[in-house]
Every structure is written in structure tokens, then in C-alpha cells.
Simulated scan of single mutants.
Amino acid sequence: MSTRYAALLRGINVSGHRKVPMAELRTLLTELGHDDVSTYLQSGNAVFSSASGDEDALRAELERAIGARFGFPVDCLVRPGAYLRSVADACPFPAAELEGRQLHATFFDRPVDAAHFHSLDAAAFRPEEFRLGARVLYLYAPDGLGRSKLAEALGRPALTRGLVATSRNWNTVVKLVEMTRD
């Protein structure tokens, strides 16, 4: 039995740097033995089916293959569709009432608890807010990510040191949930 996964690549195809063409990413995933491969947007979202049940092994395999193919390292997260559905279902903000650009999910490589963000005065950023979930941070930024002071603070090296994290707007999260349905 195979599982549908989403691969979330971090920091590619930004301002013409670290180019990973999506057609080549699809080919690479197929060459790795995965089925039903597709991509979404140019920002590093791929969906595939695999018989493997080990997302960490899939992640390591994909990172090695991307480094070998493109000549630079790319951090990846691999998450099963069931996990993505649980992220969408557990959203603490009224996602249906918000524009996709106002709500973001930052996915982490491991669980992160509130103590990780203890140095951040979240109240100083209102009406922006964040909440933690299972290996995910939900960010409500009413004016969008580009204008978000809270997103900027959350991305500071002191808070992200040692973590692999990559963010997606809510429209992308919803699309990946749809694309990973078994």
C-alpha cells in the first residue's frame, strides 16, 4: 500500500537563485521510484506516492538527490497527506473567513514547544498572532506576510537556529491537502 506525501522544499526559486525547475523535480522524484508525482507552483511543493512509511528516510533521500542533481543543498520536509489534513483541521484561526494571504503555516522538522519562543513578546505584534500545533506554527498576518513584523521576528536566527522550517500560505496548504488525498 502506498501513501501520498507532500515534499516541501525550502528556499528555492527565489529571485532567480537556487533554481530547481519543477519539471526536473518531478523527473527526480520519479527516478527515485515514486509514483503519481506532481508539483504545485514554482516554490517547491511536490506531491507523490510511495510505499515507504518513513518520512525522515524519504526526506534524506530527496535532499541527497537534489544536492547531487542541482549542486547545492536544499532542506526538505516530507509530510503524509493525513498529517496535512490534521494541520488544516486543527487550525486555530477562522481559515474559511480569511484570505489565503492572511494565514500561513510554518512547518518544522520536529516538534517545537512554546518555550522555544519565550523571548518573543507576542502581544507587541497584535493584531498579528501565532499559535503552535503539531510540528507547525500557524501565523495570522492580516496585512499579509510581506508586511508582517511578527513573521520577521519569528524568522530571526535566534529563534530558528537548529530548526528546518518552511512556510506556506493557507491557499497552498489547502491545495496540498487536496493533492495528497488518497
Rank of each mutant, 00 (worst) to 15 (best):
R4G: 10
A6Q: 04
A6S: 08
R10P: 09
N13W: 07
S15P: 05
M22H: 04
M22V: 03
E24D: 11
L29G: 00
E31P: 02
L32C: 10
G33L: 06
H34F: 11
D35C: 10
D36M: 07
S38M: 12
S38V: 07
Y40M: 09
Y40A: 12
S43V: 05
G44A: 00
G44S: 09
N45P: 01
A46R: 00
F48G: 00
S50D: 02
S50G: 01
S50F: 02
A51S: 14
A51N: 10
S52R: 07
D54R: 12
E55V: 12
E55M: 01
D56L: 15
L58N: 11
R64D: 14
A65S: 14
A68Q: 15
R69D: 01
R69I: 08
G71W: 00
C76T: 15
C76W: 10
L77Q: 05
R79Y: 04
R79F: 04
P80D: 15
A82S: 14
A82R: 14
Y83N: 09
Y83W: 15
R85D: 11
S86Q: 15
A88Y: 08
D89C: 05
C91D: 13
C91G: 12
P94Y: 05
G100V: 06
Q102M: 09
T106S: 12
F108L: 14
R110F: 11
R110Q: 14
P111V: 13
V112K: 04
D113L: 00
A114F: 08
F117D: 04
H118D: 13
H118Q: 12
S119G: 07
L120P: 03
L120R: 06
A124T: 09
A124I: 10
P127H: 06
P127T: 06
E129R: 15
L137E: 06
Y140V: 07
P142E: 02
G146C: 05
A151H: 08
A151W: 11
E152V: 14
E152I: 14
L154W: 01
L154N: 00
G155V: 13
R156A: 15
G162E: 11
L163E: 09
R168A: 04
T172R: 00
L176I: 00
M179Y: 03
M179A: 06
M179S: 02
